Amino acid sequence: MIFITVKFHVRAEYADKWLDLVDDFTRATRAEPGNLFFEWSRSVDNPHEFVLVEAFRDSEAGKAHVEAEHFKAGTEAMSYAVAETPRIVSTEIPEMDGWGAMGEVTPKTA
């Protein structure tokens, strides 16, 4: 699995429009055959920062994502709204195909 996290610092005037701006890109990416998940969150500490957590089945799926037309269109649209170059962590996690269970926290009854 290719696991990627990206932090986007968005210009103030785009902060409340960001999710609408990236909606077509998000929908198209989620529809890619090798996409495992593609999820946006807004920082609780900085209202101008959005965090993208995404994963692809393998490097081939990740490469197809970056070569897709919707990727090119999405990154072009984002370039006008970001305040700085996004920061990224990208790594391959062998033998995983999505989210695993966290063993340290389990549901309990009162």
Rank of each mutant, 00 (worst) to 15 (best):
E69I: 09
H70I: 14
R87M: 13
V66A: 14
R42V: 04
S41D: 01
D45L: 10
S41H: 07
A64C: 03
W40A: 01
D23P: 01
N46R: 06
E67K: 13
K72C: 13
H48I: 04
E92M: 09
I93P: 01
A77L: 11
E39D: 05
D24K: 12
D45R: 09
P47G: 02
R30W: 05
A68F: 11
E76M: 10
A15P: 00
E92S: 13
K63I: 12
D23L: 11
R30L: 10
D24C: 10
W99I: 14
D20R: 09
A83P: 01
F38Q: 00
H70Q: 11
Y14L: 09
A61D: 02
P86F: 11
V66W: 05
D45E: 11
E84N: 05
A61N: 04
M96Q: 13
S43F: 03
L36K: 02
A31Y: 04
F56W: 07
H70M: 15
T85F: 09
F37N: 01
Y14F: 15
E39C: 01
S41W: 05
V82H: 06
E67V: 11
P94T: 15
R30M: 10
W18I: 03
G62R: 03
S90D: 04
K63F: 12
V89R: 14
D58S: 05
T91D: 06
A31E: 05
R30D: 06
L19E: 03
D45P: 00
D23M: 13
K17Y: 04
K63G: 11
G34Q: 02
A73G: 02
D97V: 12
R87H: 14
D45N: 07
R57W: 06
E39S: 06
E84W: 08
A28C: 05
N46M: 04
V82I: 15
A77G: 04
E95G: 11
L52H: 00
E13Y: 04
D45V: 04
R87E: 15
T29C: 07
F38L: 00
D24R: 11
A73Q: 09
R30I: 12
W18L: 03
E60Y: 12
R27A: 13
S59N: 13
E32F: 00
K17D: 08
T29W: 07
T91N: 09
E84K: 08
E39H: 01
S43I: 04
P94I: 15
R27M: 10
A81F: 06
E67T: 11
L19I: 03
D16H: 04
T75C: 12
M96I: 14
T85S: 11
D20T: 08
Y80P: 06
F25H: 12
